[in-house]
């Protein structure tokens, strides 16, 4: 019980008046890496958005507990400040806000402490080198005109800087070439510690080739239909999801 970081209990979620999640249960402990896999439309992105309480999704039943605290109905920014981070499948473009100022501001908000400028700069520089990012991007507007790969790397950079307790990575590998996937996996490895937990959401298994995970959950039609270890991902890679449909 002490080790539990996130617990989802019987979660039902609607999007545009249609039920997408039909009762999800999930428990993640400190230091664990979980994967939710499932075909398109199974409710993966909805799960991530529901945890962060995106107002475009309505929870009709169930509970989300983070570190013993009910966060089901907290506002998104409050949830983020508790220590949950979400890497977006399609990160928003925000003109007029530079990446560096945005990061500084977000860091300040999540830590509730003034950012030490020099230390912060060094940290950003270090991570950007690790992630093969162009330092010029720091002064550009947030995600504006970034390529798909640059956007995803920028999400990982934000994760490393903000250093949450739980990182949810929604389709972080989709649309990336092999090299970019390696870089992103490297970023995730850097984030992994005994304390930090990760929830990876993906419809393919590419990223799992270079990442060790503890649990794999299969999500089909709004329900988790099977849970296993890394070998489950391998099995799905070979046989697809058909076996799990219509269960």
């Amino acid at each position: 019980m002490k080790n539990s970081i996130l617990e989802i209990k019987n979660l039902h979620v609607n999007a545009k008046e249609k039920e997408i999640l039909k009762g999800i249960d999930l428990k993640i402990n400190k230091g664990e890496t979980h994967v939710i896999m499932g075909p398109n439309g199974s409710g993966k992105t909805t799960t991530a958005n529901a945890i962060l309480n995106n107002p475009m999704y309505q929870k009709t039943m169930g509970q989300i507990i983070f570190e013993q605290e009910d966060i089901t109905n907290l506002k998104t920014d409050e949830i983020a400040r508790k220590g949950i981070f979400m890497s977006f499948q399609l990160p928003e473009e925000i003109p007029g806000i530079s990446v560096t100022n945005f990061l500084k501001y977000a860091k300040n908000k999540t830590t509730m402490q003034p950012v030490k400028v020099f230390q912060f700069k060094e940290e950003v520089k270090k991570y950007m080198e690790e992630l093969n990012m162009n330092p010029k991007n720091m002064e550009r507007s947030l995600n504006v005109g970034f390529s798909g790969g640059e956007k995803k790397k920028n999400e990982i950079l934000q994760m490393l800087i903000l250093n949450p307790k739980l990182a949810i990575l929604d389709e972080t590998d989709s649309g990336l070439d092999v090299d970019a996937i390696k870089t992103v996996s490297k970023g995730i490895e850097m984030f992994k510690t005994k304390e930090n937990s990760i929830l990876i959401i993906t419809h393919n298994t590419k990223i799992l080739h270079s990442l060790k995970v503890d649990y794999v959950h299969v999500l089909v039609d709004g329900k988790i239909v099977k849970t296993g270890d890394q070998s489950l991902a391998k099995e799905i890679e070979e046989n697809g999801y058909n076996k799990y449909k219509n269960i």
């Binding site: 107002p55 475009m56 998104t76 979400m86 925000i94 003109p95 007029g96 806000i97 507007s141």
Partner: peptide
Amino acid sequence: ISDKAIFYLMSRGISEEDAKAMIVRGFAYP
């Protein structure tokens, strides 16, 4: 102001009010 953009900023710990002000200032930045 795009709801998605607000949600994105809020997911980084920024309050709704700040997120909106940030987007407006960004809009005026040019």
